[in-house]
């Protein structure tokens, strides 16, 4: 057929780079918050030992894995889905949708309402994972930006807003 072309659309380098960086920050921040924040600790305590969950893009886009190890310590486990079994997968339907989520142009509830997100695994733990990410976003983002990303900005104590936030940010930067 004259004029017929076959293409395999290329990967979008800058989008993926941004997502990789953001996921690394988010992953380390969740790990940090699990050591600092009581609510996040509680959410993870309710999960079984060795439980892992991931946040990524369909079909094999950037992702992060968070999990509890055998000692019950929460760790950011990178992005290699083949290294460890993932019990709960939260997947955005495309890299573009994931980008909208992590640039906070589309909040988690909006993204979910627009059917951009799919969950495979235990729904109660998926709810817990979303609550954890909401808390972490409040730690990481300025108030005006966090308000765009979550449904309701929480009423926290002064200590949580300042001391705990500083601890989470330092731990995120240093990766412990």
């Amino acid at each position: 057929m004259e004029g017929f072309i076959e293409i395999r659309p290329r990967r979008r380098f800058f989008l993926r780079l941004y997502l990789h960086i953001m996921l690394r920050v988010l992953g380390r921040a969740i790990q940090a918050a699990a050591r600092v924040d009581e609510d996040v600790k509680k959410e993870f305590n309710a999960m079984p030992e060795n439980y892992t969950f991931s946040l990524g893009a369909f079909p094999a886009g950037p992702c992060m894995i968070i999990g509890k190890d055998t000692q019950g310590i929460v760790r950011y486990m990178g992005s290699d889905m083949e290294k460890q079994p993932v019990h709960l997968k939260i997947t955005l339907k495309s890299v573009r949708h994931f980008f909208s989520l992590l640039t906070f142009t589309e909040s988690t509830p909006v993204s979910n309402a627009r059917n951009r997100m799919i969950v495979s695994g235990d729904v109660p733990y998926a709810c817990a994972a979303v609550r954890i990410m909401d808390i972490v976003q409040v730690y990481l983002l300025p108030r005006w930006m966090a308000k765009m990303a979550i449904k309701r900005y929480p009423r926290w104590t002064f200590k949580r807003h300042t001391v705990d936030r500083a601890k989470v940010l330092i731990r995120t930067l240093l990766g412990f």
Binding site: F4, E6, R8, P9, R11, R12, R16, P59, S94
Partner: peptide, 8 residues
């Protein structure tokens, strides 16, 4: 892009 699919 990133879908792994081919377009003709």
């Amino acid at each position: 892009a990133d879908s792994g699919m081919t377009l003709g």
